[in-house]
């Protein structure tokens, strides 16, 4: 594992901690898209079907369990916790996320590394992760004002993707047979979705102002 991959995993972890912190400390999930969070649950469950069949390392196994557990906890809070669920901005979270699930699954049936149950679900999870942030980004755009922790959450998620791209570049030059075009292309698409957000994030940071997205 190289430093970029590790930095990517850590920023991913930080994003989840920031989100859990926001929900726990403020007892509020305003500005957070339940649809994006539900998509992440599907992404992790579909991708980590290999938990019981392929052992890579203790690190990988622990991280997989943390990602599954934390995404389930977030969705549980937003749906079941009495105080938290009242703060959910349902009317702003109207993205038709079922289409993303359906589209990703069809794409996985067409484009995959091997035609096996696990590999189809792995490819599905890669495609779905690439678009899972869309309901969240649309929600941010709609509300215009982004509270601090929500902004940090999306920032760290985007940083995670950026580090994974650096990780692939590094692996491409250091590993003789590194070719994983499904993950790399999907990763590029996914990171591109954050470009707009990053632009406004850095402007607000430079001006030391509250993050605001144009309508």
């Amino acid at each position: 594992m190289n430093i970029f991959r590790f930095a990517g995993d850590m920023t991913h972890l930080i994003s989840i901690v920031v989100l859990l912190l926001k929900i726990y400390a403020t007892k509020s999930c305003s500005g957070i898209s339940l649809k994006t969070q539900e998509l992440y649950v599907i992404v992790f469950l579909a991708r980590y079907l290999d938990l019981f069949t392929d052992f890579i390392s203790v690190y990988n196994t622990v991280m997989k369990l943390v990602f599954i557990g934390s995404s389930l906890a977030i969705v549980w809070c937003m749906r079941m916790h009495r105080a938290v669920k009242r703060t959910y901005d349902k009317e702003l979270d109207t993205f038709r996320h079922y289409f993303l699930v359906l589209g990703s699954f069809v794409l996985a049936l067409l484009l995959h590394e091997k035609f096996t149950f696990q590999e189809i679900f792995w490819a599905f999870s890669i495609y779905l992760e690439a678009v899972a942030i869309l309901p969240q980004l649309v929600m941010l755009q709609r509300s215009g004002n982004v509270d601090n922790l929500t902004g940090q959450y999306v920032f760290f998620l985007g940083a995670y993707r950026a580090f994974y791209i650096l990780n692939w570049i590094y692996r491409f030059f250091t590993e003789p047979h590194f070719s994983r075009w499904i993950a790399c292309l999907s990763g590029l698409v996914q990171t591109a979705f954050y470009a707009d957000f990053f632009y406004y994030y850095f402007i607000s940071w430079k001006n030391n102002a509250k993050l605001q997205l144009p309508a």
Partner: peptide, 10 residues
């Protein structure tokens, strides 16, 4: 060279 075993990224 050995084939990659499974997906090693998260």
């Amino acid at each position: 060279l050995p084939q990659e075993q499974g997906h090693d990224e998260l």
